[in-house]
């Protein structure tokens, strides 16, 4: 009885960098800590300028332009951000990256997550994007995957916690993010002078965001924030 020859072992890759092609690129996973590969079959939302390369047939269109106008009503409830986002449409593998910052993908299952607008790179149409009531943050609601960048690795912490505003990437399910000021620091005449003028040495740690309740808070391991996207101010007082 003859057997077919065993399948030959895959050729050992030559010493050196891994070479990716259209088939070996991961599907909806990280290529390395700094780049994410999207298996595109349909639509994805991207922040402008985060696509670095793609295989296949992909079109990029501004949101709200022409035939994609209806997306604003369905998935993209933030006209203020429409100019910063594009829709990638087609089939293929697409690589996303952002200034060689750490990139991670997260999956929401009928959940909600709020994230600093500059950190969000891309999301699936299963999610819908809304502006958070906290300026500079966006809220994603629904089911699907999204991709976010952070300067340094992301850490998940559970409330109750107070975090430095610059280190905050986002939070999931927490009902009550609020400001916390270190009041003891501002007491007395000297404290008043410090608070008003910064003379006498402000530590830079007088102000934190406070989270209580159930949920998770995402922190990055640096205090330098990604470039803010203009998100507009809150509603005018009295409206």
């Amino acid at each position: 009885m003859s057997h077919p020859p065993p399948p030959s072992a895959p050729p050992t890759p030559p010493a050196g960098p891994v070479i990716h092609d259209a088939w070996t690129l991961p599907s909806n996973d990280n290529v390395n800590p700094y780049a994410f590969s999207v298996e595109l079959d349909g639509q994805w939302f991207l922040q402008k300028g985060k696509m670095i390369a793609f295989y296949g047939q992909v079109d990029f269109q501004g949101i709200g332009a022409g035939r994609l106008d209806h997306l604003i009503a369905e998935n993209f409830h933030s006209p203020m951000h429409a100019a910063d986002w594009v829709v990638a449409q087609g089939r293929g593998k697409m690589l996303l990256a952002d200034r060689s910052y750490d990139i991670n993908s997260y999956r929401l299952d009928d959940g909600n997550l709020t994230i600093r607008s500059g950190n969000l790179l891309a999301f699936e149409p299963g999610l819908s994007l809304k502006q958070s009531i906290i300026p500079g943050f966006l809220t994603l609601i629904g089911t699907g995957t999204f991709v976010a960048a952070s300067n340094g690795a992301v850490h998940f912490v559970e409330p109750p916690i107070r975090v430095d505003p610059q280190a905050l990437v986002g939070w999931a399910d927490c009902p009550s993010p609020c400001h916390h000021y270190d009041h003891a620091y501002l007491r007395g005449v000297l404290g008043g002078v410090r608070a008003m003028t910064g003379i006498g040495g402000a530590s830079g740690e007088e102000h934190q965001y406070e989270f209580v309740g159930a949920g998770q808070v995402l922190l990055q391991s640096t205090e330098s924030v990604l470039a803010e996207r203009a998100t507009g101010a809150g509603p005018e007082p009295g409206t």
Binding site: P17, V18, I19, H20, D21, A22, L25, V31, N32, A35, I52, A53, F54, Y55, G56, V58, L95
Partner: peptide, 13 residues
Amino acid sequence: IVLRVTAQTPLVV
């Protein structure tokens, strides 16, 4: 990231 281009799979960068 090193990406291979073949006749069937052109690449856009």
